[in-house]
Write a protein that binds this DNA or RNA. Structure first.
Length: 488
RNA sequence: GGUCGCGUGGCCGAGUGGCUAGGCAGCGGUCUGCAAAACCGUCUACGGCGGUUCGAAUCCGCCCGUGACCUCCA
């Protein structure tokens, strides 16, 4: 029986019991989006996964400070430490100010996060808002001897760092292997070592976003922002650092190196990495162009999509796989999730109508323990959902009269359902389009009332004729015990 | 080429030594004038070949297939 929360730590490549550094406080940093274009679904998966983690930690009673940054500066195109950053490039393309790009896509990102019912982070710092912190950190790294300046650009000295620390720790790689795997690239003569990466990059005259620094005008390298901001808001050593697996090898390895070189401490206790969303088995990514936007998914307006799927169905689809597994997208899988999600929601309505008995024939205590055991095992939401479907079956059996439940068990069952379905998994009820107010709805009601009359008179020829006609128009009719229900 | 994964029933997806999740689809039933919907029940799989073991989807070896990272991406 797993009673304690276990988290898979990328650093040690095994599950470890979660012991916060300063319980009940928990510091969690998650690498957020680079806001130079719309978030695609793969990005969303990571943030939804960490939303689940944030929700569960909070549910367990931890006071979590959840920091998720917005990258709005730097982040070079390609791997050469020269030229414009992504924002400037896009800005020229769209004839906008870089900060207009940032604003546009930040707002869009927040909209999508809200639609997916994710909770806002405690702090959402921006790279441009922390330039001085980054400069201070770079200065410290230089004075500690782990970075050097070359003509206005500052590089981190990976080989020097590797003499004292294990640079390839996070990916379990040796420095020699890393060096071997690195390609020789042009235009990098300034760097001493092939693995060295830029902390600060000298601006060209035409660079749109640039700031003054001890090394002249320039802009920060991508990795330093996370080190600077996580240190500022969570301290030199904090509990959880998360992000997508694609960041593990480069971004996070560099982050560890920077923080170590600056603060002389291990920055993070538990590293958590979410796996990729795939399409036909291949990673969904911006560069591959095989991703779609959340909006396209909701409307179905994309060649890969047969039709639209609601945000909660998508969230459910994602929760049905574990965050460390790849999840393959398909219409068939999403349609299966849609059915399942509706079943789960419907059981919630049934739950509120259950009638109690003097005795209980169902084991609610066991159900509750199973739910916690599942989540305590590295946030295993698929297992949790499996147990919730056991709860659904129990609810329906009680409703059918096959099982009985007493008041205290019913209260407990409601508590379990609401806690896990809404608080932890973060689902919310989706209103089916209410058409009761508009003319179409009123007309359909009217016609169906006529059909009801025909049925009462056993005039089934007429009632079937009405049903067939409405079905043809796309109105799904569901007869109930004493009336009808319909949807478009 | 190096590093690390993965391969589970028609589909998606958990599970890491015995008790063999779950959802969807299919099938059977209940309900219904009929149908739909809903509900109940049912379907017993782990890439191949060897090995370890009383026992392996689960551990080990080899092979095949496949993916990610090593270069910007969550």
């Amino acid at each position: 029986m797993t009673k304690e929360l276990q988290i898979y730590n990328t650093l040690t490549r095994k599950k470890e019991v979660f012991e916060p550094i300063n319980a009940p406080l928990v510091g969690m940093y998650v690498c957020g989006p680079t806001v130079y274009s719309d978030v695609h679904l793969g990005n969303c998966r990571t943030f939804i996964s960490f939303d689940l983690i944030y929700r569960y930690l909070s549910h367990l009673g931890y006071n979590v400070r959840y920091v998720r940054n917005i990258t709005d500066a730097g982040h070079l195109e390609g791997d050469r430490d020269e030229g414009d950053d992504k924002f400037a490039k896009k800005a020229k393309l769209e004839q906008l100010e870089p900060m207009e790009i940032v604003q546009k896509y930040t707002l869009g990102f927040h909209d999508v996060m809200r639609i997916f019912n994710t909770l806002s982070p405690s702090i959402e710092p921006t790279a441009t808002g922390h330039i001085s912190e980054q400069i201070e950190m770079i200065k410290e790294i230089i004075s500690n001897g782990y970075a050097y300046e070359k003509e206005g650009t500052v590089y981190f000295d990976v080989e020097k760092y590797s003499k004292e620390y294990n640079y390839g720790q996070l990916t379990n790689r040796k420095l020699e292997d890393l060096l071997e795997g690195t390609r020789v690239l042009g235009g990098q003569d300034e760097k001493k070592g092939r693995l060295d990466f830029a902390l600060w990059i000298k601006a060209k005259a035409e660079t749109l976003m640039q700031w003054p620094s001890p090394w002249g005008w320039g802009f920060p390298g991508w990795h330093i922002e996370c080190s600077a901001m996580s240190t500022k808001y969570l301290g030199e050593t904090f509990d959880i650092h998360g992000g997508g697996m694609d960041l593990q090898a480069t971004h996070h390895s560099n982050e560890i190196a920077q923080s170590q070189a600056c603060n002389h401490t291990v920055p993070v206790k538990y590293w958590m990495h979410t796996n990729m969303l795939t399409v036909n088995g291949v990673r969904m990514s911006k560069s591959a162009g095989n991703g779609f936007l959340p909006g396209e998914l909701f409307t179905g307006n994309h060649p890969l999509l047969e039709r639209g799927y609601s945000p909660m169905v998508v969230r459910f689809f994602m929760a049905q796989s574990h965050y460390r597994s790849t999840l393959d997208f398909s219409n068939e899988a999403l349609q299966a999730s849609e059915k399942g999600f509706q079943k789960l929601m419907k059981a919630g309505e049934t739950l509120n109508k259950l009638i109690t008995n003097a005795e209980s024939t169902v084991n609610i205590k066991e159900l509750k323990e199973k739910c916690y055991t599942a989540m305590n095992d590295d946030f295993n939401s698929p297992i949790l959902i499996a147990h919730l479907f056991d709860a659904v079956r129990i609810i329906n059996l009680i409703n059918d009269g096959s099982e009985k439940i007493n008041q205290s068990d019913l209260d407990e069952l409601k508590s379990i359902y609401n806690t896990f379905v809404f608080d932890v998994l973060g689902f919310k009820k989706e209103d089916s389009e209410s058409t009761s107010n508009d003319l179409t709805g009123e007309l359909i009601d009217m016609v169906l009332n006529l059909r009801l009359d025909a049925k009462k008179n056993k005039d089934f020829a007429t009632s079937d004729k009405i049903r067939d006609a409405l079905t043809e128009k796309g109105v799904k009719i569901k007869d109930t015990k004493d009336g009808f229900d319909w949807e478009l």
